[in-house]
Amino acid sequence: MHESEVADRTGLTLGENGRGGRGGWFSGGGRDGNAGRSRTPERAYITGIVIALGAVAMFFAALVSAAVVRRGSPSGDWQPLRGASTVWPILALNTMVLLASSFTLSHSRLRARSGDDAGFRRWWIVTSALGAIFLAGQLFAWRQIVGAGLYLATNPSSSFFYLLTAAHGAHVAAGIVALLVIACRPARRMARRTAIEVTSVYWHAMGAIWIFLFLFLFFGGRS
């Protein structure tokens, strides 16, 4: 096996800085010689996830602006999400859980940086668990509004409520899968430290998108 690859797989011991390598991209390629040119530089994975999040953001922006436009549609059939008053405290609680998971994730990342593998793993698992609790909480919120007689097709406001939470939930579920995969086995194509960075960027973004959606639903859905 290639030596650099062995180093890659052991991940944590690798001193490679995921963001290093070359200067800003306006200066053009700076990797000199042929060494390492036949593989993807580590920082490309981070660039890649940031770009992918651009597409995710546009997807949610489309859904949210559709909700805004639909709410103002001339038919005037939009009704506020009433009768499910318990749902907002639950959603607030879920928001707290997701926020907390961002903190445990940052902590886990710091543990990994300082070479504490057990600590990394512990906080990483806690993060995944908080993610799972968030999803369970979202399902619970759905049960509440179902209990209030608000189904997917009851009113455009409930349609958007289910649509936005489901779309976000699916993205969080994908994030949980990524977290678990990284906890369980070494990354094959990138250094472990890069895998940790990539997942963290994604997870924090899901938290940020949720906070936006929560505020949107709270202020746009209730009134």
Binding site: W25, F26, S27, G28, G29, G30, R31, D32, R37, T40, P41, R43, A44, T47
Partner: peptide, 10 residues
């Protein structure tokens, strides 16, 4: 962004 050869600036 990431794979340009040395000297291949924008």
């Amino acid at each position: 962004i990431e794979m340009r050869a040395p000297g291949m600036n924008l």
